[in-house]
């Protein structure tokens, strides 16, 4: 895919500034600043419900922020027309948590789908490209299967092959490791890193699986309550003195994020009669 020449020299592919996004009255993000560098694996971590998937949808222009800006390759995503936005999305790939494969198409047709939609390549060329993409994720032999016949891990690998079909500049991974067995998880971890390095893609991994994500990330942002709590390399985070980050990284049951949901004292509840 072509790079915006004006910004080719810029090391930052995605620049998020002062992002504010509300769901009803609740602020999911409130003044979020994040830089996603080119050619690196950037992890965005945080507990469930902190809006990690929402952030990917904001970067992809599927949601509009209430304030702030998101620039992708120097273009303000939310200032683009619909046609320009679709043009921009051809430079992004996204791996959804569910895989989001089209259920009425075979594995082969799913991977061929973006090529058939956006290019005028001959069917024989598309076949070669699809087989190469499937080979890259180890599923060339599964090309004739339907999505319903795939395991969760295989579905995500097919979705990954589809996401790289148009050779995007960046791939966004939405909780790629959730619900995977150790073997599938190992395969996905290796694939994300390998694709990032071999194809010089920039990767954004949104996850709360600490060990797997820290294994492959070059840069990590930890978000909570709509803001970046801490950022740095995995090494820096592991050595972090921040209580919140330590609780999250080490999976401690109590800390700044309390074990108990806010409630009246137990004795008041027990002695206070019916509530």
């Amino acid at each position: 895919m072509t790079e915006n020449p004006k910004n080719a020299a810029d090391d930052i592919l995605v620049r998020i500034r002062g992002l504010r996004f509300l769901r009803g009255e609740r602020a999911i993000f409130d003044g979020l600043d994040i830089d996603i560098p080119r050619g690196k694996v950037t992890a965005i971590m945080g507990p469930s419900g902190t809006g990690k998937t929402t952030l990917l949808k904001l970067i992809g222009g599927q949601l509009r922020p209430h304030a702030g800006s998101i620039e992708f390759d120097g273009q303000n995503v939310h200032a683009l027309s619909t046609a320009e936005l679709y043009e921009l999305r051809m430079r992004m790939g996204m791996l959804f948590q569910s895989g989001a494969l089209l259920t009425d198409m075979s594995v082969f047709d799913n991977v061929a789908f973006p090529l058939r939609e956006h290019t005028r390549l001959s069917e024989s060329m598309i076949r070669k490209l699809v087989l190469l993409k499937l080979e890259a994720v180890g599923l060339r032999g599964a090309r004739d299967l339907m999505p319903a016949e795939l395991s969760g891990g295989m579905a995500r690998r097919v979705a990954l092959a589809r996401a790289i079909a148009l050779d995007p500049m960046m791939i966004m991974y939405d909780e790629p490791f959730t619900g995977q067995d150790p073997i599938s998880m190992g395969v996905l971890v290796q694939l994300i890193r390998r694709l990032n390095d071999a194809a010089r893609i920039s990767s954004v991994v949104v996850s709360h699986d600490v060990a797997e994500t820290l294994r492959i990330a070059d840069l990590v942002y930890v978000i909570s309550d709509g803001k970046v709590v801490e950022s740095g390399t995995p090494q820096q985070l592991a050595e972090s003195g921040g209580e919140w980050t330590r609780q999250f990284i080490q999976g401690l049951p109590d800390g700044p994020v309390p074990f108990h949901y806010a409630a009246a004292a137990l004795s008041d509840d027990l002695l206070g009669g019916a509530a």
Partner: peptide, 18 residues
Amino acid sequence: ATEQLSGLEMMAVNPQYR
């Protein structure tokens, strides 16, 4: 519900048309 429509949007395919 299975994010197929979102997936199409992110593949730069308009689900309303397609």
